[in-house]
C-alpha cells in the first residue's frame, strides 16, 4: 500500500520526495487543497473505495502515515 501511495504522490508533485520524513505535507507546501482533490480521486480509483467528503481534511493527508491510516479505515469497511 505504501508504495502505491508514494507512486501516486510522486505523480502529483514530482518535485518533492514524499518518502523523506516531513512533519506536515500541507504546511510544507508539498500538497495544496487541489492536490488533495487529485490525490483522493487517484486513491479512490486505485483502491476501489470512495473516501467520504468529511474525511477529506488536510490532517488526513498531512503525512504518509496519516494517508495510510485513512486508507486502512476504508479498506477494512
Amino acid at each position: 500500500m505504501k508504495d502505491k501511495v508514494l507512486k501516486i504522490l510522486n505523480e502529483i508533485r514530482p518535485e518533492f520526495d514524499f518518502s523523506e520524513p516531513v512533519d506536515n505535507f500541507h504546511e510544507a507546501g508539498m500538497l495544496d487543497s487541489f492536490d488533495i482533490v487529485t490525490l483522493v480521486t487517484s486513491l479512490d480509483e486505485e483502491f476501489g473505495i470512495s473516501i467520504e467528503g468529511v474525511d477529506i481534511l488536510p490532517e488526513n493527508f498531512s503525512s504518509l502515515r496519516s494517508i495510510i491510516e485513512l486508507l486502512a479505515k476504508y479498506i477494512q469497511k
Partner: peptide, 12 residues
C-alpha cells in the same frame, strides 16, 4: 478562496 476550508465546510 481558501479552497480546503470551503470544501470542508460544505462536506460537514
Amino acid at each position: 478562496m481558501k479552497g480546503d476550508e470551503v470544501f470542508n465546510f460544505v462536506q460537514v
